Simulated scan of single mutants.
Amino acid sequence: MAGIKDVAQEAGVSVSTVSYALSGKRSISAKTTDKVMAAVERLGYTPDASARKMRGMRNHIFALSAPIRGDINQAKYNAYFLQTAWQAKNRGYDVLLLTGEDAVADIRRCAGIRRDVAVVAAGLQERRC
């Protein structure tokens, strides 16, 4: 499994340049960013989530609360979930799907476990969290 040092070597840049290109915390030229991203792609590099967490970086996860009920239009729900997942993937995010009948309880449980997960609530009846 490739590490950040491997990406730096492949791209011909420093490890800090790779880090800045991936995090967006500093301005890196488009040419250098393209080199880094090409190396990431070639090597199949993925940042270590626990290392990102220790550095205080966001985990890029959001929870989608969409209770699955017997009266749902499956085709519309499937299309919605798939489109949501594609859009998240294209922006570097993952989606945690909460499907319980008690969406408020699911949201509270999720928020209690992960303080850094955003929650999108779909199909909720008006009720205070």
Rank of each mutant, 00 (worst) to 15 (best):
Y80R: 01
L64K: 01
D6S: 13
L97I: 12
A88V: 09
T17A: 13
T46P: 00
S16D: 01
Y77H: 08
S27T: 13
Q87I: 02
A39T: 09
D102A: 03
N78I: 01
W86Q: 14
M37A: 04
L96N: 05
G123D: 09
A30D: 15
S23M: 07
V104A: 07
V95Q: 08
R91K: 15
V117Y: 08
S16L: 02
K89P: 00
W86D: 13
G112Y: 03
H60E: 14
G92C: 12
T33L: 08
I68L: 15
S19P: 08
V119Q: 00
S27A: 12
K25A: 10
N59I: 11
R109G: 07
S19T: 08
V104S: 03
A11K: 11
K89L: 12
G44T: 03
L64C: 02
A118S: 09
K25R: 14
I61W: 10
D48E: 11
I72H: 06
Y77I: 14
A118V: 07
L22V: 11
R42I: 03
Y93R: 09
T32N: 09
G92P: 14
L43H: 07
A118T: 12
A38G: 13
E41F: 02
R26V: 06
L82V: 04
I68C: 03
R108G: 02
N73A: 11
D106Q: 06
M37E: 10
T17E: 03
M57A: 15
Q74V: 12
L96C: 09
D48L: 02
I4W: 08
K35F: 01
S16Q: 11
A2D: 04
T33H: 07
C129V: 11
G70I: 04
G44A: 05
T99K: 00
